[in-house]
């Protein structure tokens, strides 16, 4: 097989076309895992042009090893920064914290607290509605007054 582990190749297709890479792993009859100047990804054999060089590299070698091995051959490529998994770890923690907080509140407060805020909220809502109702007609009256006043003056 031409595409053994450690074979240097050029990508011929896609946005990484023209960039050099090393075969790290053989996944299938047609699929290989590559890394180097290209992104680390699986790739079809049809999209690779093999070169005559083969390096010694372990199966599934890390990106650092690949970069250092390619430098010896005179192929420069950037190291890819490892992905930080901070976001993933934070999100589930927040959700877990919220759930236990709600449950003890209900048990401690019993029925009294549940009733009180509801009443208060209802009263507030009612008060808001009143204010809204009051405000709107006032404005409309004022506008009407203005509209009435204008033609009279004119």
């Amino acid at each position: 097989m031409i595409f053994e582990i450690g074979r240097i190749a050029v990508k011929i297709a896609g946005r990484d076309a023209g960039k050099k890479c090393v075969v790290i792993d053989i996944l299938d009859n047609n699929l290989v895992l590559i890394d180097g100047q290209t992104r680390r990804r699986k790739c079809s054999i049809v999209h690779l042009e093999p070169l005559d060089k083969v390096i010694k590299i372990k199966k599934n070698a890390s990106n650092k090893d690949v970069v250092s091995a390619l430098k010896k051959e005179g192929i420069e490529c950037k190291e890819k920064a490892a992905k930080e998994k901070k976001e993933k770890s934070e999100r589930p923690k927040k959700q877990k914290k919220k759930k236990p907080e709600k449950e003890p509140k209900k048990s401690k407060a019993a029925k009294k607290k549940e009733k009180e805020p509801k009443k208060g909220s209802e009263e507030k809502k009612a008060a808001k509605k009143d204010t809204k109702d009051k405000k709107e007609p006032k404005k409309s009256k004022e506008k009407k007054a203005e509209t009435k006043g204008k033609p009279a003056s004119n």
């Binding site: 050029v10 011929i12 297709a13 076309a17 070169l51």
Partner: peptide
């Protein structure tokens, strides 16, 4: 297309150009 020679050569011709260079 976002590849070398995108918008200048078709994908087949781009392949032959890159292979010849190598």
């Amino acid at each position: 297309p976002q590849r070398p020679y995108g918008g200048m050569l078709c994908s087949r011709c781009m392949r032959t150009v890159i292979i010849e260079k190598e």
